[in-house]
């Protein structure tokens, strides 16, 4: 029989845990809203960039002198994997599922005899990968979302990746992040950054566009011949690295929203579980107390009768 004092102590400790988790849940909800707003605000740029790049890439893809970022380096021996995770835990399976996906890809590549390198964005990813791929992790970027995620920070990573590519340090670059669907569903997505993979015909634009311009009239221009200033190639060489930074920026924004969503759900569950635990502990506590009282009563009554 557990004694009353121990039970009381446990109930109090679970109660304070519940207070913490419910506060974390509310903080995550607020951050999620902000992250979602930021992700939405960044969409117009990415969309227009995609539109521009789409028409350029289609024109340049077949040509011999196409930039390397578009055409690739001609081999796929060395792979760079950029793993975007959170800096903090307590967000359910968020970090683990991204890392698991990245690890699986890396192992598959290693089995084929390829070389794999990692860049970790986020402390948690590095911590989990370090055991298996310690010496393959070439860099870790930490605290990217503090105080806030900005394009400059994403661009710094982008420039680094492009510089490494140009130095011939890898052939293919893939980024792993969690795409945000809703607070309870985040989908781990691998995205190839280098060589540039033309996006599947964009079917977004409905609803999230401001609808200020009449898209119908513009669509007629897709595939139209543009004039290029200064030249097609110069524009492409300027556009492709920017695009990589943008893709990274977009992925990091999605990831931030996913992280807060995952944390919100995890903390919601934790709060609920703590509530259940308090209920069952309180029940045991009351029963024990009652049993003690009953025991004492019996003692008194039987003592009285014996007299």
């Amino acid at each position: 029989m557990p004694n009353l004092k121990d039970l009381k102590v446990r109930i109090d400790s679970v109660k304070s845990t519940r207070k913490i988790t419910s506060a974390m849940k509310m903080v995550a909800a607020a951050k999620l809203r902000r992250a979602q707003e930021q992700a939405e605000a960044s969409r117009p740029y990415a969309q227009r960039m995609e539109r521009m790049l789409g028409s350029l890439a289609a024109a340049a893809a077949g040509q011999a002198g196409a930039p390397k970022l578009l055409a690739g380096s001609g081999s796929d021996e060395t792979h760079l994997i950029v793993v975007a995770t959170a800096d903090r835990g307590l967000c359910g399976g968020f970090n683990t599922s991204i890392v698991r996906e990245a690890r699986r890809t890396a192992n598959a590549l290693l089995e084929q005899g390829k070389t794999v390198k990692f860049i970790c964005v986020g402390r948690k990813g590095r911590d989990q990968l370090r055991r298996d791929f310690g010496e393959r992790i070439i860099d870790t970027v930490e605290d990217i979302a503090r105080p806030s995620l900005s394009f400059d920070k994403a661009a710094a990573i982008g420039e680094r990746v492009v510089a490494m590519f140009e130095a011939g340090e890898f052939d293919v670059c893939t980024m792993f992040y969690a795409e945000f669907r809703s607070a309870i569903s985040q989908i781990v997505t691998p995205q190839q950054l280098i060589p540039f993979a033309a996006p599947a015909k964009a079917d977004n634009g409905n609803g999230d566009d401001n609808g200020t311009d009449e898209e119908g009239g513009n669509d007629a221009l897709d595939g139209a011949v543009y004039e290029y200033e200064p030249g097609e190639e110069e524009i492409l060489t300027a556009l492709l690295p920017t695009n990589i930074s943008i893709q990274i920026f977009k992925a990091l924004l999605e990831n931030a929203a996913s992280e807060h969503g995952a944390r919100m759900t995890a903390m919601d569950n934790a709060t609920r579980n703590a509530g259940e635990m308090i209920n069952s502990l309180t029940l045991v506590y009351n029963r024990t107390r009652q049993a003690a009282i009953t025991g004492e009563l019996i003692e008194i009554i039987s003592a009285k009768e014996a007299m």
């Binding site: 605000a41 117009p44 740029y45 227009r48 394009f151 200020t212 930074s245």
Partner: peptide, 26 residues
């Protein structure tokens, strides 16, 4: 002409204007 100015972080400007002069590379 409908003019839009977009930065990676957000849509800065979106309006109908008579003319816009842009500093091109050349």
């Amino acid at each position: 002409v409908s003019f839009e100015l977009v930065s990676p972080e957000r849509l800065l400007l979106s309006e109908e204007v008579d003319m816009v002069v842009v500093p091109g590379e050349e």
